[in-house]
Computed example of a mutant assay.
Amino acid sequence: MAGKDGPIERTLHRATMVRWRRAARQAWKTSLPVLRRRSNAARALRQHLDELLHVAGERLAMPRIGSDAFPRPHGTDWSWRPQLWRGPLPVRGRAGVPSGEAVGDEVTVFHDCTISELTVRQLRNQREADLAPYGLRLDVFRFDGSFLSVVLDLPPDAAANLRKRHLLRLDAIVETEYPLEIFARLNIRHGPNTEQVLREIPAGSREVTVEFDVAYTKLNEKRAEKLWIDLIFENPEMNQITIRDLTFCRYPRAEL
């Protein structure tokens, strides 16, 4: 059975350890032809060991990859953590990011810089306090544009059965190198129209919560098609922005 370490495997492992420990101790006295063969064998073995250690580091680090665990308010009928914060992306980082660059399947970066000096990369969260396996980091250097935004496309089930009595809550863990104004804008497409609700993310707090009240829109409940969120960063030049976690919940407003 794959992954099973029985008595035979443990005996072979001990014998292999003894062999390589002896080879290391005798390296200064070993003949060059023999040393060359052992060196080549050690390099081949190290390649497999490095691969094992890399995968083990990913899987054993806190929190567990793929985790969708986070607090949800009572009555929640839809919740979501985007894939970028749940699992590894095929391409972890990009430099000189152009406007409209997709980061995974759900996140897109927009700006109006003439020359992009923006780096975006996914990083592994390893602190015990972090619930999300991954985070998103933006390093902004010279910035000659007027806006920088990260757009998240919410999945289709976010719009399914959406009603004006719903609240949509965004919870995030945001770290910045220097104080920064950040806004979150909810967009709801219903038929030919799009409703927007803008909220400012509280400054100075690492863990933030923002609620969007759908009652303040002119939503046609029968035609809700698509939801997306714009995270807008004001004057981000020479700043490092790390979004450690990002989650969404939808639940009905308490009746008055």
Rank of each mutant, 00 (worst) to 15 (best):
E255K: 13
P71I: 00
H111K: 13
P63D: 12
E225I: 02
P192R: 08
D171A: 06
H166W: 00
I232E: 11
G204Y: 08
V197Q: 11
T114H: 10
S116E: 07
G93C: 04
C249I: 00
E117D: 08
R169Q: 11
V103K: 01
W228E: 09
W78M: 00
I241W: 12
V174R: 07
D105P: 00
G3V: 04
W228S: 01
R189F: 01
A69D: 15
S146Q: 12
P33G: 00
P73A: 01
Y216T: 15
V34L: 04
D77C: 00
R19G: 01
Y216H: 15
E221C: 03
D245W: 02
G66F: 11
R64F: 07
S31G: 10
P90V: 02
L45R: 12
H54I: 03
P236A: 03
R81E: 08
S146D: 11
T194G: 04
F141L: 13
K29P: 00
A15N: 06
V197I: 15
A129Y: 06
L246D: 06
P33A: 03
A215V: 05
G191W: 09
P192L: 06
H166M: 00
L219N: 15
R43Q: 12
S116K: 08
A160E: 14
P82G: 07
C249G: 00
P155V: 01
R121I: 02
Q122L: 09
Q196E: 15
N125Q: 02
R223W: 13
A61L: 05
A184P: 07
Q196S: 15
A203T: 05
V18E: 04
R189K: 14
T176R: 07
V55A: 06
Q196L: 09
R137H: 14
V103M: 14
V210W: 10
D171K: 09
G93E: 13
Q196G: 08
A129K: 12
G87S: 10
K164F: 04
R223Q: 15
R169L: 01
E221F: 06
Q240C: 11
V107L: 15
R37D: 10
I173A: 11
D5H: 07
T194I: 15
I182G: 01
P133W: 08
T209P: 01
R142A: 14
V208K: 07
P252I: 08
L198F: 10
R64E: 13
A61C: 13
N193Y: 07
H111N: 13
K4D: 08
Q126E: 15
L180G: 07
K164N: 09
Q83D: 12
T119Y: 09
R21W: 11
E175Q: 13
G66T: 10
L170P: 02
V197D: 14
A102R: 07
F147H: 14
L168Y: 01
G6W: 02
H190V: 10
G57S: 12
P63C: 11
E200M: 12
K218Y: 07
N40G: 03
R10A: 06
R121C: 13
A69P: 07
R163I: 02
H111T: 09
E117S: 14
P179Y: 12
T11I: 03
R137Q: 13
R189M: 02
G135M: 04
L154F: 05
R86F: 04
F141Q: 13
I232P: 04
W80V: 00
D245N: 10
R137C: 13
D157A: 13
R64T: 12
L167S: 00
A56I: 03
I115F: 14
